[in-house]
Amino acid sequence: MGSLDPAGCDRVGPDGRIVEGTGGVDAETMSTLSVVPCVLSEAVWLTPDQQVRLLAVACVVSGIVWLLADGPGTEILHSLVARMCTTLDHCGATLGHHGR
């Protein structure tokens, strides 16, 4: 968490265009998370339900990075991170119960 940096988050540049950032997470990790939606259709061994849950996990993990980088105190105080972690718990628990 020490590497999360609000200056590294998405922002609008001086020319009005969106500048994509990583919030302080290394580019390799963010690249792995961002490719999940693209490769899920190739994961034919997963059920559609499992694919949706993996997509949710990738989105939630990416979202937590942005939340914590932008304002960890506010996000934790208002339970936004806790709610996102509840989603992760649910996805992880149900992915593991399919026996595949």
Rank of each mutant, 00 (worst) to 15 (best):
P37E: 05
G23W: 01
T32A: 15
D10I: 02
S62R: 12
G96Q: 14
S79R: 14
A7Y: 05
A7K: 15
C85H: 04
V61Y: 00
T74Y: 11
V35Y: 02
G63N: 12
D15V: 06
H97K: 15
I64R: 06
E75N: 14
T32N: 09
G73L: 12
M30T: 10
G16A: 06
I18S: 10
D49C: 07
L68Y: 02
P48E: 07
D15K: 04
V60P: 01
R83D: 13
M30P: 00
H98W: 10
L33F: 01
C9T: 15
L95C: 11
R53K: 14
L95R: 07
A69K: 07
S62M: 01
V12Y: 02
G23L: 03
L68S: 01
Q50N: 09
E75D: 06
G2P: 04
R100F: 11
I18G: 03
V60Q: 05
R100W: 11
V12P: 00
T74K: 12
R17H: 11
A58T: 05
L88W: 01
G24S: 01
T47F: 07
E20P: 08
D5G: 02
W66V: 13
S3D: 12
C91L: 02
L54S: 01
S79T: 14
D10K: 01
A43P: 00
G92H: 07
E75S: 15
C85W: 03
S34L: 10
G96E: 13
M84F: 06
D49E: 14
H98Q: 15
G99R: 12
M84L: 12
V12G: 03
I64M: 14
H90I: 10
V57N: 04
G63C: 07
A69G: 06
G21I: 05
L95T: 04
G8N: 03
Q50Y: 02
L77Q: 14
D5I: 07
M1K: 08
G13W: 04
G96W: 06
P14D: 11
R83S: 15
G24Q: 03
V12M: 09
C38G: 11
T86L: 13
C38L: 14
S41R: 14
G2D: 11
A93C: 09
S34C: 03
M30Y: 00
C91W: 01
M30A: 00
S62K: 11
I76N: 06
L4F: 09
P14A: 13
Q51R: 15
V65W: 01
W45H: 15
D89L: 13
M84H: 13
T74E: 11
V35F: 03
V25T: 09
L88Y: 00
L95A: 04
L67V: 03
A69M: 09
R100E: 12
P6F: 05
V57M: 15
T22A: 02
V35W: 03
R53W: 09
G92S: 11
V19M: 08
S31F: 06
V25R: 00
I76T: 12
L88K: 01
R83P: 04
R11Y: 03
R53I: 05
L46G: 02
E75Y: 09
G13Y: 05
A7H: 11
V65K: 02
L33E: 03
A82N: 08
